[in-house]
Design a protein around this nucleic acid. Structure first.
Lengths: 330, 330
DNA sequence: CTGTTAGCGCGTTCAC
DNA sequence: GTGAACGCGCTAACAG
């Protein structure tokens, strides 16, 4: 591999001049700039990033720490982040925590060791409860999860509002006994529970909520258990996430219950399959591309302006009404 | 930040001893090892990776270049790769190419600049046709796509066999006019087309194949166009990928055609929704976790043994028969 | 078993 | 406008 010294010799200038040209700094005559560029091409010179990073103490690398990249929500958010990173010549380090605080901690340590420019993180509940931006050597933008009072840069859905509108839609369609299956391990699940409770209280209805591990399999099992233990089937069931929603659909199917005939169904996240099942499923869609793009833009802004005040970007969900929530005329 | 010299001073030893202890090298007395460890804790010392990489000329970083992380296939493969990387203390750099050779080239260049230990790549067709492992400064393992004659480390499905078994299943169930919608932009799509053609030829049937851009939207549009242009609806339609399959389902639904009553349906990739629609959709499932795990293990083996012969790991698909492919009794 | 020291390749003063 | 020289923090070769 050609080094900067090789280029300098080839061009008949000093390494300092080469460095200046490469960095686009002023104070170099047009002639030498030209000669350097020619030599760079000729030798197929590529700066050594390790050396450059050691010297400059910067990395052009971002960390992306999500709980599970298989969750379509994070998949789409990641995609948007990667797009913007590409456009800015940044690298993205991908990490999965599995909602495991230990793994999360490991990766956060790794980010410090890597000396990343910044991190986009969907924190576990354990971390979020004691999260302080000042604890990290790098800027952090929280995604998907954030306490409403926390001092952090974050991009989140307006979860309370979104849940309220989704549940209100069910109330408006005449459903009274509305059950809520939510992921208890995240701030998001709890905020959506709050919205659900608000709406039910306002309507004078009794809440029926079921906390669970936010996985498809868990939701499938829990809905079946619920149906076995209670003689009266609810009018409607709402899932606090797309993964849980999928589990509910599987469980209801196994229990030979049909929607919307036997009970109505609704949930979060506009996953592709919610459109192709018959009838389609009513969901609160999250603007995942916007969330991802906003997150990395917020991070880049923070990197450029380390001192500016913390910002929370709250996005509005989009209610997609389909057949699953409309009570049959009968 | 504490440097290695600080630790050395604190422990009353030389930097060399500290370096040896940190690297776990032999030739250090138990006493000094102990003292060093204590000082490392006391100073909260973390080695500077940039310096270490500059000196050692290694990075402990892998590149993962896929065409689109939103495709559940790549999502699951990525997840498996990330898991193994975590277990081995490796970092993963994530990149999306969008099937764009220019982006692919950009990222491959980036990998060289990053001096990664190795790369896992799902190549564009443009690259695959001229791919030579020797062209890269780092080991590469191809995933999902590989010509059968190419000199490369690779992990792929046995596409020809998988397509044959899937199509044979349709033939066995009495379908005669079987259409095949496939992604023409990838080697994978073409290999599956080959399997489809083999089976139809063996059964004495006439192939009806439709090449398309391998996206859901494109598939939705193409199936509708096809149905408008041809008076006779096929007995069955097969998709060469999960994304295309989803588009077909959407298109058929818009055209008010029902499966399996009006025509049978089958495809690749066991996506979650293929189980929850009614009836379920018959698919050739790919062992995505195995594919990802095999890919990174193959890469690590190659890194450890740069000279060993190229290996292609060919995995077998798993035929999941569901209601969509069974001709109704009527 | 331990310490001294020479670079790894680059960016950046500071003289000229 | 240009170049010589130092040092970022670490590893490894060598001397003891």
């Amino acid at each position: 591999m050609a080094r900067i010294l090789d280029v300098a010799k080839h061009a008949g200038v000093s390494v300092a001049s080469v460095s200046r040209v490469l960095a686009g700094l002023p104070g170099v005559s047009e002639v030498t700039r030209e000669r350097v560029m020619v030599s760079v091409k000729a030798l197929d010179y590529h700066p050594d990033l390790a050396a450059r990073r050691l010297r400059s103490r910067k990395t052009d690398t971002l960390g992306l720490i999500v709980s599970d990249i298989r969750n379509p929500y994070f998949t789409e958010v990641s995609r948007a982040i990667e797009d913007v990173a590409y456009a800015n010549g940044l690298r993205v380090l991908l990490c999965n925590t599995d909602e495991d605080p230990e793994k999360e901690n490991f990766y956060l340590d790794m980010m410090r060791d890597e000396n990343v420019a910044g991190v986009i993180l969907s924190p576990t509940l354990a971390l979020l409860s004691r999260y302080r931006a000042a604890d990290y050597a790098f800027p952090v933008v929280l995604v998907d999860r954030c306490e409403s009072n926390s001092d952090a840069d974050a991009v989140v859905l307006d979860n309370v509002d979104a849940a309220q509108r989704l549940v209100q839609h069910l109330v408006d369609n005449g459903h009274r006994r509305i059950a809520f299956f939510y992921g208890a391990a995240s701030a998001t699940g709890r905020q959506r529970l709050q919205g659900y409770q608000n709406t039910l209280a306002a309507a004078g209805l009794t809440p029926i909520s079921q906390a669970l591990k936010p996985t498809t399999e868990e939701a499938r099992v829990m809905i079946r258990q619920y149906l076995e233990r209670h003689r009266q089937v609810p009018d409607a069931v709402v899932a606090s996430s797309g993964l849980i929603l999928l589990g509910l659909v599987e469980g209801l199917r196994e229990a030979n219950l049909r929607y919307p005939d036997d009970l109505a169904l609704a949930g979060f996240d506009d996953m592709p399959w919610t459109r192709v099942v018959t009838p389609g499923i009513t969901v609160m869609a999250q603007p995942t591309a916007d969330i991802g793009r906003s997150a990395i833009e917020l991070l880049l802004a923070r990197i450029a302006q380390p001192a500016q005040a913390m910002r929370r970007i709250v996005l509005r969900g989009d209610l997609c009404i389909r057949g699953s929530s409309i009570k049959p005329a009968a």
